[in-house]
Design a binder for these strands. Structure first.
Length: 752
DNA sequence: TGATAAGGCGCC
DNA sequence: AAAGGGCGCCTTATCA
């Protein structure tokens, strides 16, 4: 006899019920579409059908169950979505939250999730995490907990942090210096604060879960939470962190940043749930609650609890980090292990780069800011005269109204491309449009790059090896509430980033890194020839695109070739190419290439893209087909270094954006995997073992470091030669040469 | 007032 | 109908 199951689903989604049934083969499912007012009623309805299990696809009952489970909950504040995968027991019924069903039709991630979550009912062996066993650590129990932790098989760590305002008395300068410099800094006390005040980031609490084996071989865990209020607490934190047991954290880069400040490094940090899920299911979300929902058959969403009981919340984080890692290790496939092995180690150079940061010449920073502020002031005055007092060029809404008001009706947005079109359309537009452009650029410079909270005169940041789908590093502001991301610094800021006293700055930049990868991955003969040519890459492209001799390639033609190459690489359509090139450039290109006078702008752009396809037919032809084929048949994309991406989407000509992201993946991923190999090796040998240099950052195809002048030549040779090691791509040896720049006193000096 | 979405834009 | 890849940060506008 079929097992009974009840499905609570809103009447609006009732049609999708059949989709849900597919995930429960062998079950007889009765759908209930009426809104029940109480959990007890839902349980009663379930039991009346003879079922003991219910699946919940509607937000209404989800919220009732959440409230039933946690009476403190403010139902208005929660989203039912975050409870997906939760299992509630109430009145003798097991309720599994599955969530909304309407996207099941085409959303592969939802399909995968439903399959996974359904097993919490269909598979009696679905693992359930042990019950949380936790205590606040205090003088009566901490030493015993420490003794037990000594024999832990695995130990998770999680910290809670806070920003505290600093008494200004402690920020006074004596003899030109403040003795607490580097502990506090001028920053924003809340995420939305407008004014900088002296603040200090601190650890308020650290939690540990230890994994132990009992006499009869069972795995059990215990969790201890330590409030950090005194120096004694810090000493205990140092001792726990220094224990032999392998550590696991959820994105431990965060913890590591704080531990560095407390001189409390976590020893044997070998496991990371965040980096592990990045290695395995990179396209899925990676927050701890979501990860836990995948592995714990008894999971209940807990992230709303932080405000009620921070210590218990912290304990749950630790507990779930530990047990998630245990189950990841028992379930992930070999290729994910290989990914992890290749990528987890990048955490360490990333951490040292971010906590050391970049020294900033603050006199230069101020000079650059004041320069821009004057420009803004001048241009705003002119704009107010031309438009109206109070006109704000940073308001897209105001600018759009202005464009429409001046008769430029076709504007749909006010971005760069539209603004360029606007400027080209009328002499008056030209004046106003350029003023808008200028003010935006200057304000961007001021707000994003010249008004930065610095830590003791340094820009701090994070580099995150688990932050992107392709394996590139992601970058953002420091976890210490200062700095900003380091990978999008414009050229005009680079004069304010300087080497530390006694050091010089250096960089090694992989030349045409992604284009080389595209050439070798697609095996396009023409593109391989172009990237290997000793001549200028974009001029060479232009000869192939436009059938001209190398000597005939003028700068405007080279620029056209560059843009066409760029556009085709990302599989642009003619319309978008027109937008990015701008009308003027397209008209000019048509004239330079003697294209028929009667062609429209789109015709010209289509022709230009066709030039790329004629020159390099295997890129958008053969290679794209192969990518589609690989994803459709294996659900994965495997790169030349072995890095493998699990793909959930379906690429096709009809699904252009998905196709674009998958065809862009290969070269972007391979390029960064190649440079990261050298980044790690150089960091380990030259920085950690030999103390001969200090890395500043990796910017996708660029490594930046500082060293003492007497070590520059040998370090540069060490790094440059290894960056240029061959990689086998589809049976061919690919070498990416690099440009070395050495001996700079500022970052700007490393640029041409 | 604080949170969020959308628009815009910096880099490779 | 048409769709440029990968990121993070800042501003404006809006809403509760």
């Amino acid at each position: 006899m079929a097992k009974q199951l009840v499905m609570f689903i809103s009447k609006f989604e009732a049609n999708y019920g059949s989709r849900v049934r597919e995930y429960f083969p062998g079950y007889s499912i009765k759908a209930i579409t009426e809104q029940v007012s109480m959990v007890a009623l839902a349980a009663d309805l379930t039991k009346r059908t003879g079922a003991q299990d219910a699946i919940v696809c509607c937000a209404h009952l989800t919220k009732l169950l959440a409230k039933y489970h946690d009476k403190m909950l403010d139902v208005k504040k929660i989203s039912a979505h975050s409870y997906r995968g939760s299992v509630f027991y109430a009145f003798g019924v097991k309720f599994l939250i599955l969530g909304t069903t309407q996207f099941l039709v085409y959303n592969k991630q939802d399909q995968w999730l439903f399959r996974r979550y359904a097993q919490k009912i269909t598979n009696p062996n679905f693992p359930v995490f042990p019950e949380l066993d936790w205590r606040v650590l205090n003088p009566t129990n901490i030493d015993q907990f420490y003794e037990e932790a000594k024999s832990a098989l695995l130990m998770s760590i999680d910290i809670e942090t806070a920003i505290r305002k600093v008494n200004p008395a402690y920020t006074q300068m004596t003899e030109g210096r403040n003795k607490f410099s580097g502990m506090w800094f001028m920053g924003y006390p809340t995420a939305t604060a407008k004014k900088m005040v002296p603040i200090i980031p601190i650890i308020t609490m650290v939690g540990y879960t230890i994994l132990l084996r009992t006499h009869d071989g069972k795995l059990v865990s215990k969790t201890g939470v330590l409030y950090i209020n005194s120096m004694i607490d810090i000493v205990y934190m140092r001792r726990f962190n220094a224990l032999e047991a392998p550590k696991v954290m959820q994105n431990g880069g965060y913890e590591a940043t704080y531990f560095a400040r407390y001189n409390a490094p976590a020893r044997n940090y070998l496991y990371d749930t965040y980096i592990a899920m990045h290695a395995w299911l990179v396209e899925l979300s990676r927050d701890l609650a979501f990860i836990t929902s995948l592995f714990d058959g008894g999971y209940i969403y807990w992230k709303q609890e932080a405000e009620h009981n921070l210590a218990e919340y912290n304990a749950k984080d630790c507990h779930n980090t530990l047990w998630s890692m245990v189950h990841i290790i028992s379930q992930w496939p070999q290729w994910a292990v290989d990914n992890y092995t290749e990528n987890f180690r990048m955490q360490f150079p990333c951490i040292t780069c971010g906590i050391e940061g970049f020294a900033v010449n603050q006199t230069e920073m101020t000079r650059l800011r004041v320069e821009r502020e004057k420009l803004v002031e001048k241009n705003i005055k002119r704009l107010e005269k031309l438009v109206c007092v109070g006109f704000n060029p940073n308001s897209s809404q105001q600018v759009l109204k202005l464009m429409h008001g001046l008769g430029f009706k076709k504007a749909k947005s006010t971005d760069k491309a539209t603004l360029a079109d606007f400027i080209d359309s009328h002499p008056l537009y030209d004046i106003i449009g350029n003023l808008i452009k200028e003010v935006r650029k200057d304000r961007k410079a001021i707000s994003t790059y010249f008004t930065l909270p610095l830590m003791d005169g340094r820009l701090l940041y994070e580099l995150n090896p688990g932050g992107t789908d392709t394996g590139r590093l992601a970058s953002k502001a420091s976890n210490l509430w200062c700095g900003t991301q380091i990978q999008n610094q414009p050229l005009y800021t680079k004069s304010m980033y300087v080497a530390d006293p006694g050091y010089v700055l250096n960089s090694a930049d992989n030349a045409q890194s992604e284009s080389r990868c595209t050439a070798y991955m697609s095996e396009d003969a023409g593109l391989m020839e172009a990237v290997e040519s000793p001549l200028d890459f974009h001029k060479t492209n232009s000869t192939k695109f436009f059938g001209l001799k190398y000597e005939e390639i003028t700068k405007p033609i080279r620029d056209t070739g560059k843009k066409v190459n760029h556009g085709a690489n990302y599989n642009m359509g003619a319309r978008v190419l027109l937008q990015t090139m701008g009308r003027k450039a397209v008209v000019q290109a048509a004239r330079l290439l003697n294209l028929p006078r009667n062609w429209g702008l789109i015709d010209i752009c289509e022709y230009l893209l066709q030039c790329f396809d004629n020159a390099y037919p295997d890129v958008r032809g053969k290679y794209y087909k192969e990518v589609i084929q690989e994803v459709m048949s294996t659900g994965m994309l495997k790169g030349a270094t072995g890095w493998t991406r699990r793909c959930f989407e379906v690429p096709s000509k009809e699904n252009k954006l998905v196709l674009n992201s998958y065809v862009a993946h290969g070269p972007q991923s391979l390029s960064v995997k190649i440079i990261n190999k050298t980044f790690f090796e150089a960091w380990l040998y030259l920085q950690i073992e030999k103390s001969l240099l200090r890395f500043k950052a990796q910017v996708h195809d660029d490594l930046i470091w500082q060293d003492k002048p007497e070590h520059t030549a040998s370090n540069a040779e060490w790094i440059s030669s290894r960056m240029a090691r061959p990689t086998t791509v589809r049976g061919r040896e690919m070498v990416i040469p690099n440009d070395l720049k050495t001996g700079g006193s500022t970052w700007l000096e490393l640029k041409d």
